[in-house]
Design a protein around this nucleic acid. Structure first.
Length: 457
RNA sequence: GUGGGUGUAGUUCAGUUGGUUAGAAUGCUAGAUUGUGAUUCUGGAGGUCGUGGGUUCGAGCCCCAUCACUCACCCCA
């Protein structure tokens, strides 16, 4: 057994995986830029005070904390230390933590740089985040998020554009079977009002969010366990209502006659769909799901979640509108924001499961130049350089070796073409080009080789 | 934090009620083929059976502990 290993929940990405990952990164980056978002990067670590308290009690426990440098125990109160309760001394020995998501560092950035920022500010950010929870399928301790957020406008155009960006990205990635679920925090509040349960919204939402996963009976059980003992039939009548988005909105309109929050939610949704139509887009793949609940501690408006069909992976993207994210850093700062995030690692897992990565998601050379002896090795250097001048990625086998060995190398690295140089080729000023896939080979002049390779590209 | 499952060759896994020298596939390596890979044939290397203890004449197999990995719950991308 190897003694060296990786921390739990972290992974290496070899060349084959990186080619696929970069295909996803590039596709998403392209979409973000197409919609006018600008790149931003923030440090891997933030002050712990920036991070704590933003993700709920559960989230605080999942933060990776960084031990202070130096003799960090020296000044810790000896009474506290004697309790052996590590939570009591966390703040004394750690003042930095790894970021848990990209939204909070973004809010911190907006507050720190507000004088330089032109609002509405649209930024995208593709960086790793870290969570100290127990890894399982589709869940890692280090993973990438690809966030796009707009801060400083209430316009529902942003919501509509989020839907458009998700559709665009999935089109480029070749994912056809997916659902963009949309709901509104106001609609959830409306449901709670009808049940006279506004005081314990949180546990209501967490329970109904599991509806499609565990079923109606289990949700009822959980609700009763959480103290909802009244009549639940109206709630489930609403949750189970079948129909298209417009029918759902009409149906809820009758329920929400007395709920201002509910009505606001419905009018926002209606407007988002209307704007979507204004862009000339359909609402294909978009589903209004009354049971969708997420990010309860900070979302205030529309909420989104994206699921891919026929894969065992949870949601691959999510987002929503938060009215007061920056207010947690500065009470005077109340910029409304809206954004969403792609989970790259889950997209990767889903695409791998569906086997839909393009065949040419490859990052190796197009051509390997092989040689037979010292003289042809020298000659092959000129060939390689000539190919590079024509922007064809290629490499020369770096030492004398049997042709067999050089071809095996090309085969293993999935290099599609090999140019063989020997005394015959030098004498006639030609090259022998072999296509690895078929084994066919032909004799070409150098300009013909360049043309052939450019056509292939 | 709670609960299941699995640890045997580089990798994926067999291994009978406990019985002598622990196997296969694949990969690696050398050759058949001194200008041709992937396909074919022949040979070779590679294992402290996760670790520590116990039961037994005898343990890969049974018992205990421990570690690692993995799946699920809570929560989340």
């Amino acid at each position: 057994m190897e003694k060296v290993s990786l921390p739990k929940g972290t992974r290496d990405f070899g060349p084959a995986q990186m080619a696929k990952r970069q295909f996803i990164f590039d596709s998403i980056r392209k979409v973000f830029q197409r919609y006018g978002f600008q790149p931003l990067e923030t440090p891997a670590m933030e002050n712990l005070s920036t991070l704590t308290g933003k993700y709920g009690e559960e989230g605080d426990q999942l933060l990776f904390k960084i031990l202070n440098s130096g003799d960090y125990l020296k000044d810790v109160d000896s009474v506290k230390l004697a309790t052996k309760d590590s939570r009591l001394i966390t703040n004394d020995i750690s003042e930095k933590g790894l970021r848990y998501d990209l939204t909070v560092p973004f809010a911190r950035y907006v507050v720190t740089n507000r004088h330089e920022i032109t609002f509405p500010f649209k930024r995208y950010q593709i960086q790793p985040v870290w969570r100290a929870d127990r890894p399982q399928k589709g869940r890692y301790r280090e993973f990438y998020q690809c966030d796009a957020d707009v801060v400083g406008t209430d316009s529902l155009v942003c919501e509509a554009e989020i839907i458009l960006m998700i559709k665009d990205a999935f089109k480029i990635l070749g994912i056809n079977d997916y659902i963009v679920k949309i709901n509104h925090r106001g609609i959830l509040s409306g449901l709670a009002e009808i049940l006279n349960a506004s005081a314990k919204e949180g546990s209501l939402f967490v329970a109904i969010d599991k509806l499609d996963k565990i079923g109606e009976e289990k949700v009822k059980e959980e609700l009763r366990a959480r103290g909802f003992d009244g009549d639940l039939s109206s709630l489930f009548e609403t949750l189970n209502f079948k129909g298209n988005t417009k029918q759902k909105i009409d149906f809820l309109g009758q329920k929400f006659t007395s709920s201002e929050k509910g009505k606001k939610g419905l009018s926002d949704l209606t407007e988002v769909l209307s704007l979507l139509a204004g862009f000339g887009a359909t609402d294909d793949h978009v589903e209004f799901d009354v049971a969708l609940a997420r990010g309860l501690s900070y979302y205030t408006g529309c909420i989104f979640e994206v699921k891919i069909g026929n894969v065992s992976i949870g949601s691959v993207s999510g987002g929503g509108r938060y009215d007061n994210l920056t207010a947690v850093f500065d009470a005077k700062e109340k910029s409304s924001g809206v954004g969403f995030s792609f989970g790259i690692d889950r997209l990767y897992d889903a695409m791998e499961e569906l086997n839909i990565f393009p065949k040419d998601a490859r990052a190796s050379s197009t051509v390997l130049v092989a040689h037979l002896d010292e003289q042809s090795f020298r000659h092959s250097l000129k060939i390689v350089q000539g190919l590079r001048e024509n922007e064809i990625s290629c490499e020369v086998y770096p030492e004398p070796a049997k042709v067999k060995k050089q071809l095996e190398y090309a085969d293993k690295k999935k290099i599609p073409f090999v140019v063989v140089i020997g005394s015959e080729e030098i004498r006639t000023e030609t090259v022998t080009l072999k296509k690895m896939e078929t084994g066919n080979q032909l004799t070409l002049s150098f300009p013909e080789l360049v043309t052939a390779m450019q056509l292939y590209k």
